[in-house]
Nucleic acid binder design. Structure first.
Length: 963
RNA sequence: GCUCUGGUGGUGGAAUGGUAGACACGAGGGACUUAAAAUCCCUUGCCCGCAAGGGCGUGUGGGUUCAAGUCCCACCCGGAGUACCA
């Protein structure tokens, strides 16, 4: 019988679905294992061959774990909220829910054809109210909690209120936006609105004014990459930097735990490194520099905020952050960021105009421009001076935008000799440069002769008072100790990580379950709707664009106000600010829904809770997560934060959500080209015949009409009617195309759709081929040139079973089988699926050669194949007389008795060769080695008549024998 | 700039420090066939040689080792992340 995948595959897919073969229960005596894929955004283009790569790998692993006796959770769903559907809606008026539904249906159809073992009963969609109810719920919990740095834990905001009422901010160490200081009496004296404002400063989800790129013409906030030269990329409208009220998540509160948690997870070093860099922890010191102002002038706006709390002496000063406290003797100037609030009060009258001009200029510069002109040095002197607390020198204070407002305190001590940016600034403005670190204690030179600064944290301190001669590391510690002793600073840690802006002026996202309640003072207070009223469903709107007044699209919704008494959404016209209030108009960003979806899969139908304690108690966390590394600084940070918060709440049972993580590499496109002669527009020259590339124009050609780089000329004529009459200069009767690796995209005609390949070769071939392409983690171009080989292999594999199986003994076959079991098992654990496929090919060829049809060999082999090629395995399993599914078979166990035993220490290489090592005494000779080999050979029946082909003898008691 | 990755035939890629190039594609030759497709067999890193055989080979240069694609040092090239983060 022929191997007819077209008949076998749909038949088994149907059976599996009808019998619920992949349904997973939360109750089992078996050990649990959770294999998760990053769920896709269902785009209009459908799946291309890059998407299933990771899904196939994880499916193999999930099936393997199941065969090894685990209860495996392997779910799938859709990240269904997102921009493309909304943009499509703006253009066509088609509701995003409709497009999303269609795209999901298409994705599902494509996924089903590949034969995955997903439990579709657990599907989640982020746009489903039954799901986003819990996204909103989590947001409310974030709103209702603050982060206690002493306990290193999120705590209910009610505890904070209690504390304020009893002792004010006394002894409080909590994450906040602005440091605050007040007494219990002051707290009690505040009005409701004022108290809420204070609490907002501590909440983990908070509303704050944040600078954004605002484009009035487009009526929306733009990301930095959507703005060039102060104009919007689309339309070229002016963009301004504007402070806007935005919801943010205080993810920075978790910065240290996000760093620490990386120690506990089994991720690649490179991904951990990406996260560490993103969080950007740096240790250093905060130091207060006093201002050099007349003694009586101690009231300076801006300066007060920087007074050391523990220093009663009323000297106006400001705080800087440095990672190099050891270089404090080399400070020759100070720099404030243009946004610094001290600038106004310290600038001298002579400098005032210049400073104001500079600040205004810097303010109007877009983030983009600023980043593009990093090399250009700019700045201005304020006329004011600070005092170096250790040397008591007067130091000029400058303003420059190379100091960023968002990092540290927005002020630095500049040490031009040992910081390249300070160095460039000093050179540009002719400021002094003083060496305070040298590679050797006496290696001091004139910095005027330097071409660059010495930034390395190695060597010795020089010209540095009491730390001179110390190693840099010791000097750092000594300076910090001194500063702490003097009460003018302390050790501290800074992070590069910023809080996550959580508002989007978009329609197609989760609505915030918040309304704006007017209090007696007339101020609006952000107020959560009651938890039991969730979900707050996304309202219908007349238009998906922003409103004429610049409100987000939800401004078009009629029914979008909250009635406190009826506890429901009512028409906007009923807003009276007494019992009916306006609802929030922004929606949540894409990462909101994807931050906790893995937990919902554990208990997807629960309508009482996000997930039950029993479900999470059973599954714990994700054992294996497969997805792209491009999410390293986005989703994977947010999800870890989300999980840690739920852990603090006592809901998640593991602090880290994803124990092991595999990054599948991107599949790039492989474009094909034809070459048109520049002299003759109707002449195409085969690649090998081109003498000079300058004579031809390469033109993209659809990869679907090219086979192994050979062009199907007839189909080309049909595809491009304008070339119907074109002539082709052929080599060996064929037109050979050129190729190049590019992004997979429609415009380059290099998109490969998996359905076409499934129709042509079958799902099992596609699965094996995607694995055979190369290591899962590696980025690689898609290329169908080798798929024939895999297809041929499956036909041969089928043929092994074609005559039926017998109960014959086959010692040689068992040997091959057990080699295969060992290799495949090792490969799967290492996620090395490309070598697994090779192993199957070798095994099949060898069993085919010996015409092995022994059941004892062929039956376990089918089980080995089941994770990789489930359809053909299932079919053969049943043909061998089984009535249960191969998914519930038992993974065969490697038995070394069929290979090498006792004194012989393997590895055995499975290439039709064997190599093993025999240990000999240290003083053994070549003759001893040969003797040992023949003894070993004699004692081994499994060696048969084989004689060693080559014996490599080396001193030190080891010989290698090659058979 | 910094961090992380990788560099092996015509191609994709194999090699717990132990025969480098498994397996597959492509290419060349052959069998079967009226013919083609399909299938099967042989050859295929480079150089010298009719051959047996010999020499050279994992980006470059050093080193450790009986033995290095693999470990160490320096450099060159590609890919990714990040970027006035003090």
């Amino acid at each position: 019988m022929e191997y007819n995948f077209g008949e076998i595959e749909p038949r088994w897919q149907k059976r599996w679905r009808e019998d619920g073969v992949y349904h997973v229960s939360n109750h089992s005596d078996k050990p649990h294992y959770y294999v998760l894929d990053m769920f896709p955004y269902p785009s209009g283009a459908g799946l291309h061959v890059g998407h299933p790569l990771g899904y196939i790998a994880s499916d193999i692993y999930a099936r393997y774990k199941r065969l090894r006796g685990y209860n495996v959770l392997h779910p799938m769903g859709y990240d269904a909220y997102g921009l493309p559907a909304e943009q499509y809606a703006i253009q066509t008026g088609q509701h995003p829910a409709v497009t999303t539904e269609q795209n999901i249906a298409r994705y599902r159809e494509q996924l089903d054809k590949i034969g995955f073992s997903f439990d579709w009963d657990r599907e989640v969609r982020t746009c489903d109210p039954r799901y986003y109810r819990w996204t909103q719920w989590t947001f409310l919990q974030l709103f209702k909690h603050y982060y206690d740095n002493t306990l290193q834990k999120a705590m209910p905001i009610a505890k904070l209120e209690e504390r304020f009422a009893q002792q004010g901010t006394e002894g409080l160490d909590a994450s906040c936006t602005e440091p605050m200081c007040f007494t219990a009496e002051e707290w009690r004296a505040m009005g409701i609105a004022q108290q809420q404002k204070v609490l907002m400063n501590y909440r983990l989800a908070y509303l704050a004014d944040i600078p954004v790129n605002w484009c009035a013409e487009l009526g929306t906030v733009l990301a930095n990459d959507e703005v060039v030269g102060g104009l919007s990329v689309r339309g070229g409208y002016p963009v301004e930097r504007k402070l806007m009220r935005q919801w943010s998540l205080r993810i920075t509160a978790y910065a240290q735990r996000l760093v620490d948690g990386l120690e506990q997870v089994d991720w690649t070093d490179s991904l951990k490194e990406i996260q560490r860099n993103w969080i950007g922890r740096s240790e250093g010191a905060a130091v207060w520099f006093p201002l050099d102002v007349p003694a009586n002038e101690n009231v300076l706006p801006g300066a007060q905020a920087y007074m050391p709390q523990f220093d009663p002496q009323p000297v106006p000063s400001f705080e800087i952050f440095t990672t190099r406290p050891d270089t404090i003797f080399g400070v020759t100037f100070m720099v404030l960021c243009p946004e610094h609030e001290l600038i106004d009060s310290i600038t001298t009258d002579e400098q005032r105009q210049q400073v104001q001009d500079y600040v205004a200029w810097a303010k109007n510069r877009s983030e983009r421009e600023r980043q593009a002109e990093v090399k250009k040095v700019s700045g201005v002197f304020t006329g004011a001076y600070a005092v170096n607390p250790l040397t008591e020198e007067r130091i000029p204070i400058w303003v420059s935008d190379y100091v960023l407002a968002g990092y540290g305190t927005g002020a630095i001590m500049a040490v031009p000799a040992h910081d390249s940016r300070d160095f460039a600034f000093a050179r540009h403005f002719n400021l002094p440069i003083r060496q305070v670190v040298a590679m050797e204690k006496d290696a001091v030179s004139d910095p005027a002769t330097w071409s660059e600064s010495m930034d390395a944290k190695t060597g010795y301190s020089v010209n540095s008072g009491f730390v001179s001669g110390m190693k840099v590391k010791d000097a750092m510690a000594a300076v910090i100790d001194k500063i702490e002793e003097m009460g003018i600073g302390h050790r501290t840690v800074n992070y590069r990580l910023r809080d996550a802006i959580f508002s989007r002026q978009r329609y197609w996202g989760e609505p915030f379950p918040m309304y704006y309640k007017q209090v007696d003072s007339g101020e609006q207070v952000a107020t959560p709707i009651p938890e039991e009223c969730l979900p707050l469903e996304l309202p219908e709107v007349s238009e998906f664009k922003p409103t004429a007044t610049g409100e987000p699209p939800l401004g078009h919704a009629k029914a979008w106000a909250w009635d406190e008494q009826k506890r429901c959404v009512v028409d906007k016209s009923l807003v009276d600010n007494k019992t009916v209030f306006p609802l929030e108009l922004s929606t949540m960003p894409g990462f909101a829904g994807s931050s906790g979806y893995y937990l919902r899969y554990m208990d997807p139908l629960n309508d009482k809770a996000y997930f039950s304690p029993e479900a999470v108690g059973y599954w714990q966390n994700v054992d294996l997560y497969v997805g792209g590394a491009e999410h390293g600084t986005g989703h994977l940070i947010y999800a870890r934060f989300w999980n840690k918060f739920l852990f603090d709440m006592g809901m998640a049972v593991k602090e880290e959500p994803f124990q092991r993580l595999i990054n599948q590499g991107m599949i790039q496109g492989r474009s094909n080209f034809v070459y048109r002669s520049k002299k003759d527009n109707n002449l195409f020259i085969s690649k090998g015949l081109i003498k000079d590339m300058a004579e031809v124009t390469p033109i993209h050609v659809d990869i679907n009409i090219v086979n192994n780089d050979v062009l199907d000329v007839e189909r080309f004529r049909q595809w491009r009617p304008e070339y119907a009459e074109a002539r082709f200069e052929l080599e060996d009767g064929r037109y050979v195309c050129g190729w190049e690796i590019e992004k997979m995209s429609k415009s380059m005609y290099n998109v490969q759709n998996p359905d076409d390949l499934v129709a042509r070769y079958g799902a099992d071939t596609l699965r094996l081929y995607e694995m055979f392409l190369g290591p899962v983690e590696q980025a690689k171009p898609w290329d169908t040139n080798g798929i024939e080989g895999v297809s041929r292999f499956l036909k041969k594999f089928w043929k092994l079973y074609d005559g039926g199986v017998t109960d014959d003994e086959n010692k040689e076959g068992l040997k091959i089988l057990h080699q295969t079991i060992k290799k495949i098992t090792d490969d799967i654990e290492r996620f090395s699926f490309n070598t697994s496929v090779s192993t199957f090919m070798i095994c099949t060829n060898r069993l085919g050669e010996m015409k092995c049809n022994s059941r004892a060999v062929l039956e376990p082999l089918v089980v080995l194949m089941a994770p990789f090629a489930p359809h053909i395995a299932e079919e053969l399993w049943h043909q061998m007389g089984h009535t249960t599914t191969v998914c519930d078979a038992e993974w065969p166990v490697y038995d070394p008795k069929y290979l090498v035993e006792d004194m012989v220490k393997y590895p055995v290489q499975f290439n039709g060769k064997m190599r093993f090592t025999i240990e000999l005494p240290a003083d053994a000779t070549q003759a001893d080695a040969l003797k040992a080999v023949s003894e070993a050979a004699e004692g081994r029946k499994w060696m048969g008549d084989a004689q060693p082909k080559k014996v490599i003898f080396v001193p030190k008691k080891i010989i290698n024998i090659v058979l």
